[in-house]
Design a protein around this nucleic acid. Sequence first.
RNA 1: GGUCCCGUGGUGUAGUUGGCCUAACACACGGCCCUGUCAAGGCUGAGAUCGCCGGUUCGAAUCCGGUCGGGACCGCCA
Length: 622
Amino acid sequence: MRASVQRSKSGCPDHGQPNSKIEEHTFVSAQWKRTHTCGELRASDVAQTVTLNGWVHRRRDHGGVVFIDLRDRYGITQVVIDPQTMQADQGAVASVRNEFVLSLTGAVQTRPDGTRNPNLPTGDVEVHAAGMRILSVTKTPPFDLNNPDLEVDEAIRLRYRYLDLRRAEMQQNMALRHRLIKAVRDYMDAEGFWEIETPILLKSTPEGARDYLVPSRVHGGNFYALPQSPQQLKQLLMVSGMDRYFQIARCFRDEDPRADRQPEFTQLDIEMAFVERDDVMDVIERLYLQLADTLSDKTVQTRPIPRIPFAEAMEKYGCDTPDLRFGLELVDVSDLAQNTEFRVFKDVVAKGGIVKGVRAPGCGDYSRKQVDEFTTLARSLGAKGLVSIAVDDEGLRSPVLQHLGEAAASRIAGALEAEPGDLALIVADQPDVTNAVLARLRLEIGDRLGLRDPNTLAFCWLVDFPLFEWDEDESRWSFVHNPFCGPFPEDEDLVESDPGSARSLQYDLVCNGWEIGGGSVRAHKRDLLEKIWLTMGFTPDQIDEQIGHMLEAFSFGVPPHGGIAMGLDRTIAIFADEDSIRQVIAFPKNQQAVDLMTQAPSPVSDAQLEEVHLALRAKREE
RNA sequence: GGUCCCGUGGUGUAGUUGGCCUAACACACGGCCCUGUCAAGGCUGAGAUCGCCGGUUCGAAUCCGGUCGGGACCGCCA
């Protein structure tokens, strides 16, 4: 539980408070209203009298002439203030500082030879000010807004997010986000989809992520839940005959945030009637290729988007979100490993584990310390250790060479296709741990060797997922995807006879190692759905309670249907070269799910609690 | 719930094998000078008891413990 959230120190130096006496002007007279934006004046506009409104990006005061770079969303224009020709109060001009909001009027002129600025679209011209009005003064900003290279602590940026959003990088990200969502809407419309809104206040569903709850005032003791996704509603819209639905939907999940996860996030939510797997995938594939072509300078690595069966992805990459921008596939060496004298390997294989490895090209000369970094990473993900084998022209070097034996080590290195100069990294553990660790090590190698080309979009579809996975904690089968995902038609009998072998009609779209979307063709037949839920250990009564309303709806004539949900924040982050979706969300929350700007979540009054019939069990702090 | 990393003027960093730190540098900020800059320039000034609390020590920004804040990850995320 969060104790008291510290407001960082007041932040802004206000030495001498020079601004307190400066007159600010109300924006009443049309005379001071902009005629142009700060990004549009060109040589062809010379001789026009214009008025610009904007923020002072930078000010260069030469004692006589003063240059002001005025900035708005559209760009930056240089304004020259010459005391000889300027009608305004010189004191006001001298008082201007960065981030003041100004109205400046004057004539557009060609810049003198040799003073043009090729780095600015407006750099051929400048406005010679005839008048100036200060619309708003400012305190000194808590961090530099005009230095694109400066990396300011994210907590400070989030506290003053409205200032952070003035920076060019964030303006570009917001522009990209707007254009991408606009392109999505245009595309969906052209494809015959209807955008239909669904409720934000709905019923809590116990499966899945933790719900955000909203207490009901009218119905004491009862709660709405915010949607984790509009899953059930969009399926019901199929029953309603809407045929093709989409929504730019806000979704809410009360789980710990990450770089690629926020408590609330935005999905392109889609559902289609009378479709098979390929129909949904085709709609999304064409959309994403179009988005990549029109909104990104990056190159799509492979068209059409390759499809990778889940089992193959786990085998080659150790995860279901492979980064295909580079090779370095994992290799299973369990057979070789179990025939060595190395007890660690033999025991793991004997207990159902696997031994796999990955090649780190050119890392054969890594120091003990560098190899230890790999080991630390492996241990942090649950591995008990990491076996490294360095290959050079002399032979092999490995901490476990004598346990493994020269010949066996050589065979394993050979299986990994390690050449002189390479380092082979091998993990032996239960399959999930081995794969998770090596998947991460593979990415780490890719990062270190610069193999994750930021100019490439390596899309792939993950298909042929299992329908169920075994839940160790609860000793029962559970969903891999969602409660309505359908099995392969030929696998329907396996739902009862061999649940672990039933394949699902799920598909995930992956790009550069990020899962950017997933969906499925649904199980729309009542008996099949009931069978699936029975397999997962629900009693008929429980099934009725959980999805009775869906089964009832399906009893009134349901079209075969399927859909998908695309993570737009992640999509935009990849397009914008950002490591975190916070960079493409205007007002995100931090890793503790706190909004550092508004300090939400926050206590509410006793009266508010009373109204919604709540009493707190623990006295809140502070 | 857990592992790891980080915390020094407004911002970003240096200093962190304890002592020459009376804490340095750049930007920002205040004052003065300067009529063609575009990261303008010159001179000058103010600003941090080193997140907080406690401990070790003759001596702590530096070592130890705790705590708060931030980040990456694991768990969690149908």
